[in-house]
Write a protein that binds this DNA or RNA. Structure first.
Lengths: 205, 205
DNA sequence: GGGGTCATGTAATAGGTTACATGATTCT
DNA sequence: AGAATCATGTAACCTATTACATGACCCC
């Protein structure tokens, strides 16, 4: 099922999404994505956009429609979604919503190698993380509240609610982990120290 | 702070981590990563490993130490961590543990564009997701329990506990979201339908 | 009317994945 | 002894990011 999509970059999904409504030229897409704040959810930079549009064109999901000129600005190529593109877009969306994907966040990588650090250090680092997580949570909450205050329905910010749920899960995990290793006599802490003694690590780093 | 690391690929972090203990040649690294199950936490494929080792060498974090030959097998270059490499490794680990990074999971992208799908459909898709999340959770739990049953201390699987915490957060979120849109007369559901009527979407897809 | 910034895109470079290649070992 | 798989690496090909380029508009 995890089909071999011809274009995998999620920016392409956003492009197809906007082209569902009406044809646009790349720069307009770029603007729209930025002002809609989609760049909080999808990695985006100016250069990649043109690349992605090119890929979509080669894949037959969008087609150049006309090249218009307005005032004395350079010519712009307007792209429209093809029928194939419409199908691809819907299918991809459905897949993303229904099938959890295996991903590789940096924190997971670090956790899997955490034995390399001294537990006393890790306690400090995790406390820092905890504070920052709480800060991020507050920022997101503020952003959502402000936007909703301006009359936007929370449905349009549901991805931010998801982020908050993830942050809360992480805060819980970090708290638990800290409890297990903060006390120098705790089981986990002793195991950790013992392992590092074995492999001959410098206990101070 | 969020320094401009010369090598950003997380696979490089794992490589440096293993080279902390002793010098190895790339193929041995490859084997070790696989058998230790690090490929669950760090994206890994055979080809990238050689690339990453090359990058690390150019950056001065590892150095070719000797080329050994065993039996009639091809020659292998053994790499050792340099002092710079040791510093970089420790610093990077500390950064990853203490600073939450902004990342771009596929589900967030889909959520931010979710308005393109019909709410009735989304209900179904989310139910499917929920079931799969529960399946994944059970798999991870089983893996952890089995490994711990074999005498491995749970400290060495802490990244899997983190995954479970994230999945639990996601399950909670999806459940809430479903409640908000499952009932055709719920506030969210009506907003959603109204928006789609405005932009003239086909209600059946 | 000159200095910023907006609008619009292309080109150069670096990063990552897949495919290919080849001798050694093991299995039947 | 031929087939399968392990061991080991290189090369070709995409993908993605950064840097460069250039005319228009706007402010003082």
């Amino acid at each position: 099922m995890a089909s071999k999509r011809k274009v995998r970059n999620l920016l392409a999904l956003a492009v197809m999404s906007y082209l569902t409504h009406r044809p646009m030229h790349p720069y307009e897409l770029s603007r729209t994505l930025r002002t809609n704040g989609d760049d909080r959810s999808i990695k985006f930079n100016h250069g990649s956009l043109y690349m992605v549009v090119g890929q979509l064109e080669r894949a037959g999901f969008v087609a150049a429609q006309e090249t218009s000129r307005e005032g004395q600005r350079p010519e712009r190529t307007v792209y429209a979604l093809t029928d194939d593109g419409r199908r691809e877009h819907a299918e991809w969306m459905r897949e993303l919503v229904s099938e959890p994907q295996h991903e590789y966040p940096g924190f997971v990588a670090a956790l899997s190698l955490i034995g390399a650090l001294a537990p006393a250090d890790v306690v400090e680092l995790l406390q820092t993380r905890l504070a920052r997580l709480q800060g991020q949570r507050a920022e997101i909450r503020a952003l959502v509240d402000e936007t909703v205050g301006n009359g936007v329905h929370p449905l349009f910010l549901v991805e931010e609610e998801y982020r908050i749920a993830q942050i809360d899960g992480e805060i819980g995990f970090v708290g638990d982990f800290l409890e297990r290793i903060a006390d120098p006599n705790a089981d986990w802490r002793r195991t950790w120290d013992a392992m590092r003694a074995q492999t001959g690590e410098d206990p101070s780093q």
